[in-house]
C-alpha cells in the first residue's frame, strides 16, 4: 500500500479540476447548475468520455460490488435472523440475538482473546524482526538480492504447505524444534500442539517465520527512500550506529510501519488457512481457536449459519477498525 498515499494525493488534485476538465475535454455543453448524485450522474452521462469509459470499469465494478458489498449486506441481514437449522432463514423477524449469544458464549470470548493475542504478537514481532533484517540487508552487503530472495521465500508458499512443514518442525520425537531444545541444558522436549498453553505461541512463531520477509521488503523500501544526508548528519554528530537508527532513521519509517501493520493484521485475520491445514479439520488444536476458525466451524461444520454470520460481521468490524483509521490517517495528513 506504499503507493496509496501518493496515488490518492494526485486523485484529489484531479478531483478539484475535474469539473473544468469535463468540459474542456470536448464533452457536449451540459447543465452544471444541479447538485447531488443524480445531477452528477446526469452530467456524467452527458459526457462522452464517461459513456465510453463505462464498458471498461463497470463490469468489474458490478462483479466486485456484488461479491464484496452485496455479500456483506446479505451476511449482516443473515446475522440478524434466528437459527433455523436447514430451512431458509426468516428475514421478517430481525434482532441482535446472535450477537448477544456470542458475547455470552465462552468459546466466542476465548476465540476473541486468541484473535487479539495473535494479531498483536504476530504483528509486533514481525515488524521488529522485519526492521532489523531490513537494516542489516541495507548495510551495503554483497549478494543482497540472494539474501532478500531467501528471506521472502516463505511468503510465496501456501499456508497449507507451510502448515505441513511446521507440523513436522514441532514433532515431539524428531522435530527440529525439540531436537534444538534437547541440546540446550535444563530444557525438555515439549508437546507443542497438544499443550493448549503452547499451541498458539507455536502457531504465531510459524506465521512470523512466513511473513517477516514481507515486513523486511516494506522497510527496505522505506530505508531506501531516506536521503543519505540524514545518515551522514547523524554520523557527523557522533551518534553511534544504534542511536542513529533509533533517533534518526526509525522515526522516518512511520509510513512503512503503518502500511505494514495494516497488511500484517489483515494476514493475521486470514490465519484460518494455516490452522485448518495443521489438522485438516474445522476444529483447530486446543488453545488456537480464533474468530476465523470459530466462524468456519459454526457455519460449515455445525450449520449455525445465523450465528456464524454474526461472527463474520464482527470480524469485518474488527478489520474495519484497523483499516478505517489507516485510510483516515492518510486523508487527514493531506494524502487522500
Amino acid at each position: 500500500m506504499r503507493d496509496l498515499a501518493r496515488d490518492a494525493k494526485r486523485l484529489v488534485g484531479r478531483l478539484g479540476s475535474a469539473e473544468d476538465e469535463v468540459r474542456a475535454d470536448g464533452g457536449e455543453p451540459v447543465d452544471t447548475q444541479g447538485s447531488g448524485p443524480i445531477a452528477a450522474l446526469k452530467r456524467n452521462l452527458a459526457n462522452q468520455q464517461f459513456r465510453e469509459s463505462m464498458p471498461f470499469w463497470l463490469p468489474a465494478f458490478l462483479l466486485m460490488a456484488l461479491f464484496v458489498y452485496g455479500a456483506i449486506i446479505w451476511n449482516f441481514m443473515l446475522s440478524l435472523t434466528d437459527p433455523v437449522g436447514l430451512g431458509s432463514p426468516d428475514y421478517s423477524d430481525l434482532d441482535f440475538d446472535m450477537y448477544v449469544q456470542a458475547f455470552t458464549s465462552d468459546s466466542f470470548v476465548n476465540a476473541t482473546v486468541n484473535t487479539f493475542v495473535l494479531l498483536v504478537a504476530f504483528t509486533l514481532v514481525s515488524l521488529v524482526l522485519g526492521l532489523v533484517v531490513a537494516i542489516l540487508v541495507d548495510r551495503n552487503i554483497r549478494f543482497e538480492n540472494t539474501f532478500r530472495t531467501i528471506y521472502l521465500l516463505p511468503m510465496s508458499l501456501s499456508f497449507v504447505v507451510t502448515a505441513q512443514f511446521w507440523l513436522w518442525m514441532y514433532n515431539f520425537d524428531n522435530g527440529v524444534v525439540n531436537l534444538f531444545l534437547d541440546v540446550l541444558p535444563f530444557v525438555d522436549k515439549v508437546r507443542w500442539f497438544s499443550n493448549p498453553e503452547l499451541a498458539l505461541p507455536a502457531v504465531i512463531f510459524a506465521l512470523i517465520w512466513q511473513f517477516s520477509g514481507y515486513t523486511m521488503v516494506v522497510y527496505l523500501a522505506g530505508l531506501r527512500a531516506i536521503p543519505t544526508e540524514h545518515y551522514e548528519a547523524a554520523r557527523v554528530d557522533g551518534a553511534s550506529t544504534f542511536k542513529m537508527y533509533w533517533r534518526v532513521i526509525v522515526p522516518q519509517l512511520k509510513g512503512s510501519t503503518i502500511s505494514a501493520t495494516v497488511v500484517l493484521m489483515v494476514f493475521a485475520l486470514k490465519a484460518f488457512d494455516f490452522l485448518y491445514a495443521l489438522r485438516g479439520t474445522y476444529l483447530p488444536y486446543k488453545g488456537t481457536d480464533i474468530l476465523a476458525t470459530l466462524m468456519m466451524r459454526e457455519a460449515f461444520s455445525n450449520g449455525h449459519f445465523a450465528y456464524a454470520a454474526a461472527i463474520g460481521i464482527m470480524l469485518f468490524v474488527l478489520a474495519l477498525g484497523v483499516v478505517a483509521p489507516y485510510l483516515t490517517y492518510q486523508y487527514r495528513s493531506g494524502q487522500l
Binding site: A18, L41, N44, F50, M64, N75, L269, M296, A299, A319
Partner: peptide, 25 residues
C-alpha cells in the same frame, strides 16, 4: 476523467481489506 471516480475507486480499495469470513456464507 469524469466526476465521482474517486468514490468508485475508494470502494475498490476498501474491498482489498475485507476478511473473507464476512462474505463466505
Amino acid at each position: 476523467d469524469w466526476k465521482g471516480q474517486v468514490g468508485i475507486l475508494a470502494l475498490f480499495i476498501a474491498g482489498i481489506f475485507i476478511p473473507y469470513q464476512a462474505v463466505l456464507i
